[in-house]
Amino acid sequence: MKWSEISIHTTNEAIEPISNILHEAGASGVVIEDPADLVKEREDQFGEIYQLNPDDYPEEGVIVKAYLPVNSFLGETVDAIKEAINNLIIHNIDIGLNEVTISEVNEEEWATAWKKYYNPVKISEKFTIVPTWEDYTPVNSDELIIELDPGMAFGTGTHPTTVMCIQALERTVKQGDRVVDVGTGSGVLSIAAALLGADQVQALDLDEIAVKSARLNIKLNKVQERCTVSQNNLLDGIREDADVVVANILAEVILRFTDDVSRVVKRGGYFIASGIIAQKKQQVREAIIDAGFEIEETIHMEDWVAIIAKRR
């Protein structure tokens, strides 16, 4: 399939309404190229390197891009987008230069272009995540390497919620532990637990595609003898005791199964909960405490929170 890239040179003020217009026109997402990103300060506690090319950004204003399938209705769709953007002026929204350009993108090129922005990243004291297509030499002998081929569906393993989970696993997983990873996605947390010495790791996800992705990445990292992957709804049907349960999912979902976590985690074992936006922190903390846990540590990164709790 061929895709058409529509690019609108506009203003910061118009980003949100133009993004809405593009979504309504059928775009599943937008790309925003804002020159302010070139000077934005980012945390680099573990030596992450952010590579941005100034040539990709406008000198003034912002560029909003979206991708639409090339079909017989494309011309009408683009005309409707242009008209809707022009109508923003009626609502006193500054649309700036409002330069709209269209270019064709081959699907294969579009599906792989993102890889150039994904490089080895040290995400904690011990772990570095390395894409499968990169050559990487460990900096020191005790560095743990996770090779990941995330595809476009389950991320690169460097999102703050994932990073905090891996840091929490470093503090809680011991040799011979049994770990349950709820909502495994790419399988990165299960791989980390195995590399930290866990003897049995059970990776669970309701999404069939996630299950396949996790199995591939687990095999890639040669920990398949200690990791099993199953399609499962949260902890339904899980009976074995676990030393650690880790869940990097939405706060709303965590609230639904804290009692199940308490049932599965051994006394003195740990529950690592992440994927929690800051506004939901207190609500999740209270639910975890009510389920029989003590909060040992709360980790913050950007607008996200992870909680390490120990079962009383």
Rank of each mutant, 00 (worst) to 15 (best):
I123N: 01
K222A: 15
S190Q: 02
E302V: 08
L74Y: 04
A194H: 05
F271N: 01
P120A: 08
E104W: 04
I81K: 01
D135S: 14
H9T: 09
L204R: 06
V130R: 03
V244G: 06
K2Q: 11
A192L: 00
G185D: 06
G26C: 12
D177Q: 08
H300A: 13
Q282Y: 13
P138Y: 06
D177M: 11
D79M: 03
T11G: 03
Q51K: 10
D290C: 14
V173Y: 03
V70T: 03
N98Q: 05
F154A: 01
D177S: 14
I272S: 02
I90T: 13
A192C: 08
S28N: 12
I49N: 08
V78K: 00
I288M: 08
N71R: 06
L38A: 03
L216K: 05
E170R: 02
V229A: 10
H91C: 00
V229M: 11
V163C: 03
V121S: 12
L169G: 12
K310L: 10
G151T: 14
D260K: 12
I288E: 06
G96A: 09
T298R: 01
S103N: 06
F46M: 01
E24Y: 10
E109D: 15
F271H: 04
P58N: 00
V121W: 00
K212V: 14
I238D: 07
L68E: 01
I272V: 14
I277M: 07
P17K: 03
